[in-house]
Amino acid sequence: MTAAPPDAPSVRSVVVDEPGEHRLVTGPQPQPGPGEVRVAVHAAGVCASDREVYDGTRAAGYVRYPVTPGHEWSGTVDAVGEGAVPFGPGEPGGTSAQLLGRKVVAEGFRACLRCDRCREGATSLCTSGYDETGFTRPGAFADSLVLPARLLHLLPDEADLRAAALLEPAAVVAAAVLAARPRAGERIAVLGAGTLGMLAVQLLAAHSPAELMAVDPREQRAEQALTMGATHARTPGAEDSFGGSGSPEGYDLVVETAGAPGTAHDACMLARRGGRVVLTGMFEPGSQGIDPVHLSVSQLTVRSVFGAPSAAWSYAVRAFGSGLLDPAPLITHELPLTAFGEAIGLVGSGDPTVGKVLLKP
């Protein structure tokens, strides 16, 4: 990012100086440097990770104060730095001028692209250290955002930017689906019907499962999953504690999205012998562990997902562009940038009627 000229217009951003302390600041509009673009933010989603940043409960090394949060967002490119060119499907050999005015989302991880993990395509496992928009770099709870053009994913001109703000969690879910390799006719369960769970239901429904069960203790959320592609929905019953899955043989695939203290354990109990489990929730220290005896005897395959590599982003953006993925029904609240405190309160309220909360600059 380069210095702003003296006559640059002012823009606003939310800054969390330290846990529990935030302010709305006004300063010169940021200018993109070489290889960078500036995006006018249309909408930015508030998630539990942003609440962790505000509360000070995010793990050490995964946030750098002071910080402008905001890692789920959509917007329009309004300035392009020298050498910033579009790339990706359908964009070979483009010019910087072709980026101006384009609707975009972007990957959050600032991977080095040089280490062995990056070279094999696992950019979310970059060995150069954790670096992510909204946590260690300025995020999208602001009027403008500057970032490397190489992280962009271009959206169709007719794309709904309000819904596109949810493509970051959709990319995380896409990473889980790519790891899970669902097959047509399988019996699948999704544990958790929050934002990640609902997006998982949509992407998994596209693989034509024989059964797609959504499980959530909030009856209203479980039932909403039926409108997103689930064939069945239920709340966990105290009488079974997931020891039986609701089906005698268990599920071929279980995707865990809740990150609650017991859901990693519960996901493994839902799976059939020889089944597959993918964990996407962010667990806190002290969560119930997976029983190694059950894991071994049942011969389960367990994968975990943290963030999303480029391939998962491409998958999510394609699914969104083709209409297979529609995050819009998950949005329940839209607030101005000045209402950051209220938005954080909603996300941490535990109210089952609160879905995705957006900040709109």
Rank of each mutant, 00 (worst) to 15 (best):
1 M>G: 14
3 A>E: 14
6 P>C: 12
6 P>E: 15
11 V>P: 01
17 D>E: 15
17 D>N: 13
18 E>G: 12
20 G>D: 09
28 P>K: 05
29 Q>K: 15
39 V>L: 01
40 A>P: 08
43 A>N: 10
46 V>P: 03
49 S>K: 02
51 R>T: 15
54 Y>F: 13
58 R>M: 08
67 V>M: 07
69 P>K: 04
71 H>V: 11
76 T>L: 08
80 V>H: 06
81 G>M: 00
81 G>V: 02
82 E>L: 08
84 A>V: 06
88 G>E: 10
90 G>T: 03
91 E>W: 15
93 G>F: 15
99 L>H: 06
100 L>D: 14
104 V>L: 13
110 R>T: 05
115 C>Y: 01
120 E>H: 14
123 T>W: 03
126 C>R: 03
127 T>W: 03
129 G>E: 14
140 A>V: 06
141 F>C: 03
145 L>Q: 01
147 L>Q: 04
149 A>P: 08
152 L>V: 08
158 E>G: 14
161 L>M: 07
164 A>M: 02
164 A>S: 03
165 A>M: 06
165 A>T: 06
166 L>A: 04
195 T>D: 06
197 G>E: 02
197 G>D: 00
206 A>G: 05
214 A>L: 09
214 A>E: 08
218 R>K: 10
218 R>H: 12
219 E>Y: 05
226 L>W: 05
227 T>G: 11
229 G>M: 04
232 H>A: 04
233 A>P: 01
236 P>V: 07
237 G>R: 11
237 G>F: 11
238 A>P: 12
242 F>E: 13
244 G>M: 06
248 P>Y: 12
257 T>D: 01
266 D>Q: 15
272 R>Y: 13
275 G>T: 05
294 H>P: 09
296 S>M: 14
299 Q>Y: 13
302 V>E: 06
302 V>N: 05
305 V>P: 00
306 F>N: 14
310 S>N: 15
311 A>R: 11
314 S>Q: 11
314 S>E: 10
314 S>T: 14
315 Y>V: 08
315 Y>M: 09
317 V>S: 11
317 V>R: 10
318 R>V: 07
318 R>N: 09
320 F>Y: 07
320 F>N: 07
322 S>G: 10
323 G>V: 04
324 L>I: 04
324 L>W: 06
325 L>N: 10
326 D>W: 04
337 L>Y: 06
337 L>H: 08
337 L>G: 07
345 G>T: 14
346 L>W: 02
350 G>H: 07
353 T>Q: 02
358 L>T: 01
358 L>S: 01
359 L>A: 05
